[in-house]
């Protein structure tokens, strides 16, 4: 599996081992930076907001006693497993009706409500320690406090693992910016790599190396957490 990585390293020294692709990319293609920061921005915002929404929702799904809970869960499960192309069309129509096409919000909002985070958090919360929640409820009646001090504190590992997965997925999204955005300056790095031949010089390989780095860093930091997160 790792040879792929080394080839990434190898292949950007092209044209007789020169730095030309790198200088072309770093100094000659200012739009690259815009798209890089766009990617980072989208990924960060989506991760934070999605966690803010998915954690309470999963908590509610686990603890609340309510009719139709199973149905909600099933809907989310099916939504999560749907191919992206299928969910994109409803998303597009929803965004179009609200006039959010070609804005940053148009990318962020549908991703926040993706089912992935909710389902994963729900699976983790199944083996949450209920006694602790009960104990905390005696002290406070605020759900928010219980959530922050008990639930989040207990599930740090899982939340980090989920966050990294969401980050990786958002960093890698291609279809949404391609279809929802028209303005080049709002698009992200995946689109840049897709259209790398439009730019001058061999910018493709250096761009994909830079594209790898943030996720790779996260992976190296959290690889054990990630493994635990999947196994649970």
């Amino acid at each position: 599996m790792l040879p792929i990585l080394s080839t990434v390293g190898m292949s950007f020294w092209q044209e007789k081992l020169s730095l030309k692709p790198w200088t072309d990319l770093l100094f000659d293609t200012p739009i690259f930076y815009r798209m890089f920061w766009n990617s980072v921005f989208y990924a960060f915002v989506i991760v934070i907001l999605e966690l803010c929404i998915a954690v309470p929702c999963a908590f509610g799904l686990v603890t609340a006693k309510m009719r139709g809970k199973k149905i909600i869960f099933m809907i989310y499960l099916i939504l999560m497993m749907m191919p992206l192309q299928v969910t994109l069309l409803p998303n597009y129509i929803g965004l179009r009706d609200m006039g959010l096409i070609n804005t940053r919000m148009g990318i962020i909002l549908p991703m926040i409500f993706s089912a992935f985070g909710i389902i994963i958090m729900h699976q983790y919360m199944m083996n949450l320690d209920e006694a602790q929640i009960e104990a905390a409820r005696l002290e406070t009646s605020s759900v928010l406090k219980v959530l922050i001090y008990v639930v989040v504190a207990q599930m740090k590992t899982c939340i980090i693992a989920t966050a990294v997965f969401i980050f990786a997925e958002c960093f890698n999204m291609l279809e949404q910016p391609m279809l929802f955005l028209k303005d080049e300056r709002l698009k992200n790095l995946t689109v840049f790599i897709m259209n790398a031949s439009d730019y001058e010089g061999k910018v493709l390989f250096p761009a994909s190396v830079i594209f790898l780095i943030p996720v790779l860093i996260l992976y190296l930091y959290f690889n054990e957490t990630l493994e635990k997160g999947i196994k649970l």
């Binding site: 770093l26 100094f27 200012p30 930076y33 890089f36 920061w37 830079i210 780095i213 943030p214 860093i217 190296l220 930091y221």
Partner: peptide
């Protein structure tokens, strides 16, 4: 790794402003 991370982000920020 932390060192590398810092270098990466700083150089990206630096280049964003000064590459031009």
């Amino acid at each position: 790794l932390l060192f590398f991370t810092l270098i990466f982000w700083f150089s990206m920020i630096f280049l964003t402003f000064f590459s031009r």
